Amino acid sequence: MRRLKPAPRAAAGRVVVVVGASSGIGLASAVAFAGRGDHLVLVSRSSEALESAERACRRAGACTVDTVAEDIGAPAAAGRLVDRVLDRHGRVDVVVHTATVMGYGSVETMPADVFTTVVDTAVHGTLHLARAVLPVMRRRHRGTFIGVNSLLGSVTVPRMGAYATAKWGQRAVLRTLQQETRDEPGVSVCIVSPGSINTPIYDQAANYTGRAVRPPWPVLAPERVAAVITRLADRPRRHVSVPVGPGNPLVVTGFRLLPRLYDRLVGPLLHLAVFTRGRVRPTPGTVHRPAPDRERVHGRWPVHGRGGD
């Protein structure tokens, strides 16, 4: 089998903005870019968690690290963020949008404010960020916007309606942006669609099911997603969504081509793979406010395969 040549190391000194940088895939991506000597701007709702992320990126070799505590779901936050980056660096080369919140519970029983905030964080957060940063990239005729979506941006599962709605809506925004930036060849909008990733989000999620949850097998390390993101920053793929997870294509195919069989199996399989015997009280988790002490790269579940790419 012919071996593919490794992707070239990107020239040091890019200005990379990572939104959702204090935990999980966002933090893993920030550390990966730091290892390349890039200038980093780390964004999160939690200034306390950002301090830890900043230290990790400096240790990894970032050229510079700035932190910005903003909730990207707020309408004016993205504009303030981009203005600050331009004042500091004069340009934006790469934006990685990973910020998300998760919720478990049926559409009928999840509180409306929790459902709406899960959706707003993904959909309006992406909208506000894109509207603020893409005109800046257009003026320079280059730049890469990477949105981290999900397998649940292509399928639905019971008791995860809020998250699926959020990710379907976000995917629609990102795909439309891919079409609307075709007139600017130097500006790329990329989509990454991870499956089950070992991050703290499962312990941070809103939960109105009465049962504790876990990520379904196979669980991958967030570094796997970070490796895909850094490759896309080097070599953007403008017109596709890049999956991360060995089972993703099979699940999407079943959802699209065998809907009756999919609907019959998805509920029982979800109970076996996701819901544990542990009992939990109803909680909004971190949907409305962060929990800095619970933010880190990894969750508490064993991973499948290698931790890196």
Rank of each mutant, 00 (worst) to 15 (best):
V219E: 00
A21W: 00
V187Y: 05
L269V: 15
R9A: 13
E295L: 15
T117H: 09
L177E: 02
I201N: 07
A132S: 09
R175V: 14
D66P: 01
R231M: 08
V96S: 02
V114E: 02
S52R: 15
P215A: 05
V17H: 05
L152S: 08
A30D: 09
Y262L: 02
G61E: 09
L42P: 01
Y202D: 13
V251D: 00
N207I: 02
G79H: 03
A130N: 04
V297Y: 07
R159H: 11
A166R: 05
V85D: 12
V15M: 06
P218R: 03
A11S: 11
D120V: 09
L232K: 06
T64E: 07
A112R: 14
G153T: 03
H141V: 12
L265D: 03
Q178C: 09
G247L: 09
P249K: 00
G143S: 10
E51V: 12
G308V: 14
M137D: 02
V252W: 04
A172W: 12
C63K: 13
I201H: 03
E108R: 15
T67L: 04
R182P: 10
R231N: 12
E180I: 06
P282D: 13
R9G: 10
L40H: 07
H239A: 13
A130G: 11
R58D: 01
L42M: 02
G195D: 05
P282M: 13
V18F: 03
V95S: 01
R296L: 11
V240K: 10
V123L: 10
H288K: 10
R142E: 14
V65Y: 00
G24C: 01
V119R: 02
P249I: 00
V303I: 14
V114M: 06
T286D: 11
P302S: 10
S196Q: 11
R14Y: 04
V16T: 08
A60R: 01
G37D: 10
L42G: 01
R182N: 08
R211D: 05
F33Y: 12
D71F: 09
V189W: 02
V266R: 09
A273V: 12
S196R: 05
R2H: 13
R139E: 15
P302Y: 07
I25T: 00
D83C: 06
R91Y: 06
L129K: 06
G186I: 06
L258Y: 11
Y163A: 05
W217N: 10
L151A: 04
A49N: 00
R36G: 14
V68C: 08
T276A: 08
L129Y: 08
G307F: 10
R281D: 15
P284Y: 05
T230C: 11
A11G: 08
V148P: 00
A291Y: 14
R171S: 14
G147T: 06
L86M: 15
P194I: 06
V85W: 11
G247A: 06
R91K: 14
P222W: 01
G79L: 03
H271F: 15
G147I: 05
R80K: 13
T126I: 10
V123R: 03
L269M: 15
V96A: 03
G285R: 05
R2V: 15
M1S: 15
K167L: 12
A130M: 10
D263T: 04
R300F: 12
D113F: 11
L174I: 12
G20E: 00
L257E: 11
R36E: 15
M110V: 15
P282E: 14
G143T: 09
P302D: 09
H304A: 13
A12T: 08
Y163D: 05
D93A: 05
